[in-house]
Amino acid sequence: MSLELEHECPRCEGKQTFWRTASMELHLGEKTKWRCPECDYGFIRINDEADIDSSRIDA
């Protein structure tokens, strides 16, 4: 898996290059944390499908 991901950042209001900060294998699939280097916004992606805003939870 790549260390970079092009993704829409709601704080920067545009596409940014997010960096993978952590990953682990769960029973649901791979959980990956991504962080925007510009504003520190983060989200979690499980199995490359579901995006979860990690700025609202302690993940």
Rank of each mutant, 00 (worst) to 15 (best):
48 D>H: 01
5 L>P: 03
18 F>R: 00
16 Q>C: 03
13 E>R: 08
17 T>N: 11
36 C>G: 10
38 E>F: 13
57 I>W: 07
49 E>H: 07
53 D>E: 00
52 I>T: 09
59 A>S: 12
28 L>P: 12
54 S>E: 03
51 D>K: 11
59 A>R: 09
29 G>C: 04
59 A>W: 15
21 T>E: 11
18 F>T: 00
12 C>L: 14
56 R>P: 01
31 K>I: 09
50 A>V: 04
25 E>Y: 14
33 K>H: 06
14 G>V: 11
39 C>G: 12
37 P>L: 15
8 E>R: 07
33 K>N: 06
3 L>T: 07
5 L>G: 12
41 Y>P: 01
49 E>G: 09
45 R>S: 15
5 L>W: 05
14 G>Y: 09
46 I>A: 11
14 G>M: 13
41 Y>I: 05
46 I>F: 12
41 Y>V: 07
37 P>N: 05
34 W>A: 10
18 F>I: 01
9 C>G: 05
24 M>Y: 06
49 E>W: 05
30 E>W: 02
31 K>T: 08
18 F>A: 04
2 S>C: 08
33 K>F: 12
57 I>E: 08
55 S>F: 06
55 S>R: 06
30 E>K: 11
25 E>K: 14
25 E>S: 15
18 F>E: 00
40 D>W: 11
1 M>N: 02
19 W>E: 10
16 Q>T: 00
38 E>D: 05
49 E>F: 09
54 S>V: 04
40 D>S: 10
35 R>C: 13
51 D>F: 12
36 C>S: 08
48 D>V: 02
15 K>Y: 11
38 E>H: 05
14 G>R: 09
43 F>W: 03
11 R>V: 14
19 W>C: 06
54 S>L: 10
3 L>K: 08
52 I>L: 14
4 E>M: 07
43 F>D: 02
27 H>D: 04
15 K>N: 13
35 R>L: 13
6 E>W: 04
32 T>G: 06
45 R>P: 05
53 D>Q: 00
40 D>H: 13
48 D>M: 07
36 C>N: 05
39 C>A: 14
39 C>K: 11
55 S>Q: 09
59 A>F: 15
35 R>A: 11
5 L>S: 11
28 L>Q: 15
53 D>H: 00
32 T>D: 02
29 G>F: 02
53 D>I: 02
2 S>A: 13
15 K>M: 15
15 K>S: 14
20 R>I: 10
24 M>T: 09
23 S>C: 14
37 P>S: 12
11 R>Y: 10
50 A>T: 00
10 P>V: 06
28 L>Y: 13
53 D>W: 00
54 S>T: 03
54 S>I: 04
34 W>D: 02
33 K>E: 05
17 T>G: 09
8 E>I: 08
57 I>H: 08
26 L>S: 03
26 L>M: 07
49 E>P: 03
58 D>P: 08
59 A>V: 12
56 R>K: 06
17 T>R: 15
30 E>F: 08
11 R>M: 14
10 P>W: 01
22 A>N: 15
5 L>M: 15
28 L>I: 14
57 I>T: 08
17 T>H: 11
16 Q>R: 01
48 D>N: 02
41 Y>E: 04
55 S>I: 05
19 W>D: 06
3 L>N: 09
37 P>W: 05
33 K>W: 04
28 L>A: 13
2 S>L: 08
46 I>Q: 07
53 D>R: 01
